[in-house]
Write a protein that binds this DNA or RNA. Structure first.
Length: 642
RNA sequence: GCCACCCUAGCUCAGCUGGUAGAGCAAUGCUUUCGUAAAGCAUAGGUCGUCGGUUCGAGUCCGACGGGUGGCUCCA
């Protein structure tokens, strides 16, 4: 589509355009602006498609130049660094087969097939070899190869995985490979123009991974790494990883005596007194809120006859994750979810439309047998308590009820210091039950709620549960990590399955809609998230020990005890440090324990009938009377200040 | 479940190529009674995850089991 004089038109994102001769490469185009500009580029997008700098323009196109600090550019940088690593691996370990090596969020990986899997100790050598290849500054060249030639090429190199991949590529697609020196890899591209363009990189870990993620396939050896345009950015990322490690709830949980794990009950948390305090505070916060939002709390058995689980469908769909037991020769199951129990309660009495909506909540302990390799601290355990609830209502109530659920969820997240929440709406999956009409209606209802409340959300088409669409809530913690916690799911299936009904205005029986909802989800997991979010420096209202009293010398014990007992009576969680230590050491201990308020008591305080206040991480806050302090602290707690 | 790595005192960790355990912190005792992130001295504490094997001899080598850590969707 070139113009009459043979030139083609190139349009840039800013709206500017120019005419150039066909056949010009992206690099040449950039060089016209300035050689220095070209030097900053690593690739480009032509008509929205990422291409190499060597890409030749043949017709009128939109061109966007890519630097490595853009999102698309960074992805290319990561991908090229993966190739760089593969080249280094092939140099060091020639009888290794390469498989795939994509860019991922925050990094890249490459899977290798090798008799001897890689260990952490190999990483340094591979990194050094990568650095050498960067210094060699080898040009990276794209080659388009006819299908059969490509198969022949990779077969002759003994790269059987590549051959397998090629044979699965769509007939219509062009097959391309990228060569850098002696290394050639099947790849769609684009890539950096030369290895010298690689930024700062680091190899992070090795892991096993199945070929194509399928556990029936061979286990390959995967190396993870990351790369950034500059050393500074790499360092920033590595610091963030260090910070995450420092905040790891498993580490802090042990250090601060919150909980422990034992071989006698793998992947099940034992909460110590301090951990139990935080755990109960989370539960109380939700329970209080539930009351305000019109929920009625219930309590259902842990173990129920297996027939119930046949009825609910859990036996067929969830059996692998359930615990079973035999009592009096009858088969029972330990509940993995609370819904069937709630349905039994609903069913236990005749219900009228006047009773709806029924909002039934339970802090229900569930047991799920997670596979041994997937458990992780408090984040993934085999028994946990859900702040579960089920709302039974009519189809017309859906919008209003879901609206209330949303309000409550946002309110509670704010209380815990999470202001940044992502919302996702998932719609009908391919495998689903229920009529198209009901699905449309309920999806529309959920969407209407979100629009009505002007909540931004991401749509996940086809990601809903088989029984209904859902809204998921992800909170962002202080390190910017995202955690899925709350959920609101519509369910048209289970009420019918268990035969629950209410009498309508028309005197007929109707099946109510059920909304499953959880705010914090798993209390265990939420506590883990909270620990990492606050780095265990909990706000006053959540801290397991709120006030630590630090007498200067033994003769101050009596006055200290008086203060302590007054604080206890006012409802505070208090400890006194009676060790034979200097005040500096007592302060240090209290700081390490992350106690929000330290009270130093000595001769001066006794004489003035005061306490000297020190706040965690802030330092000396001066002396004041106990009454003054109490007012301050009680106020802070009432507001649940962060 | 699968792959790699790890398991030594309450905690964090030393212990080289096998010769039968060590530090710091914590704990306890004594001295000290001290003003906002570590006082001094002393004492006690481990069948080196469990079981089996190799060896004259195993924390150390081999195997099984238990527990843990990082991974196992992100498709050349």
């Amino acid at each position: 589509m070139s113009s009459s004089n043979g030139d083609i038109t190139v349009k840039y994102p800013g709206g500017k355009s120019e005419k150039v001769s066909p056949g010009i490469t992206v690099a040449e185009l950039a060089a016209q602006i300035s050689p220095n500009f070209l030097n900053q580029l690593i690739a480009a997008k032509v008509d929205g498609k990422p291409v190499d700098l060597a890409y030749k323009l043949a017709r009128d196109v939109d061109v966007e130049f890519l630097k490595p600090d853009s999102e698309d550019g960074h992805e290319i940088l990561l991908h090229s660094t993966a190739h760089l690593m593969a080249q280094a691996v092939k140099r060091l370990y020639p009888n290794t087969q390469v498989t795939i090596g994509p860019a991922i969020e925050n990094g890249f990986y490459y899977d290798f097939d090798r008799d001897e899997p890689f260990t952490d100790d190999d990483l340094a050598a591979i990194e050094a070899e990568m650095q050498k290849i960067v210094e060699e500054n080898i040009p990276v060249q794209r080659q388009e190869i006819p299908r059969n030639d490509a198969i022949e090429l990779f077969r002759s190199m003994g790269e059987n995985y590549k051959v397998e991949i090629i044979s699965e590529i769509d007939e219509k697609e062009t097959i391309s490979a990228y060569r850098q020196g002696e290394f050639i890899d099947l790849c769609r591209g684009p890539h950096l123009p030369a290895t010298g363009k690689a930024g700062a990189f680091k190899l992070l870990s090795v892991a096993g991974a199945y070929w194509r993620g399928d556990e029936r396939n061979k286990m390959l050896s995967r190396i993870y790494g990351t790369a950034f345009p500059t050393k500074k950015e790499l360092k920033k990322y590595l610091n963030m990883l260090e910070e995450a490690k420092r905040r790891d709830h498993r580490k802090l949980g042990k250090e601060l005596d919150l909980f422990s794990f034992h071989d006698e009950a793998p992947a099940n948390a034992f909460f110590h007194p301090k951990g139990t305090t935080v755990y109960n505070l989370i539960m109380d916060t939700v329970a209080q809120s539930n009351l305000r939002y019109g929920y009625q709390e219930v309590n259902t058995p842990l173990i129920m006859n297996v027939s119930l689980w046949h009825q609910s469908g859990h036996y067929d769909n969830y059996r692998e994750n359930m615990y079973f037991t035999k009592v009096d020769d009858k088969d029972f199951a330990v509940k993995p979810m609370n819904c069937p129990g709630h349905l039994l309660i609903f069913k236990s009495t005749p219900r009228s439309y006047r009773d709806l909506p029924v909002r039934m909540s339970e802090f229900g302990r569930v047991h799920r047998h997670e596979r041994s390799g997937v458990t992780h601290g408090l984040f993934r355990v085999r028994t946990f308590v859900q702040d579960d609830a089920h709302i039974f209502c009519t189809e017309d109530d859906i919008q209003k009820e879901v609206g209330l659920v949303l309000d409550q969820i946002f309110e509670i997240y704010r209380t815990f210091g999470f202001d940044n929440v992502h919302v996702e709406l998932s719609t009908r999956p391919e495998k689903s039950i229920g009529s198209a009409e009901v699905w449309e209606k309920s999806e529309a209802a959920l969407e209407a709620v979100l629009k009505d409340k002007a909540i931004e959300y991401k749509l996940n088409p086809g990601d809903g549960a088989f029984y209904g669409p859902k809204i998921d809530f992800h909170i962002l913690d202080s390190l910017g990590r995202s955690w899925q916690c709350g959920t609101a799911q519509l369910d048209f299936s289970m009420p019918e399955q268990l035969g629950i009904s209410y009498t309508g205005e028309d005197g007929q029986d109707h099946t109510p809609v059920m909304i499953h909802r959880a705010v914090v989800g798993s209390l265990e997991r939420f506590m883990g998230i909270l620990i990492e979010h606050y780095a265990a420096s909990f706000p006053l209202w959540l801290a397991p020990i709120q006030v630590k009293l630090l007498p200067i010398a033994d003769r101050h014990f009596d006055y200290t005890d008086q203060i302590a007992s007054r604080l206890l009576k006012a409802g505070f969680r208090v400890e006194v440090n009676r060790k034979n230590e200097k005040i500096g050491q007592k302060v240090r201990q209290a700081e390490l324990e992350k106690v929000p308020v330290m009270l130093i008591v000595g001769d001066k305080e006794i004489e003035n009938q005061q306490v000297s206040v020190r706040r965690h991480k802030q330092g000396d806050a001066g002396a004041m009377s106990l009454d003054e302090l109490l007012e301050q602290l009680l106020n802070e707690i009432r507001e649940k200040a962060h």
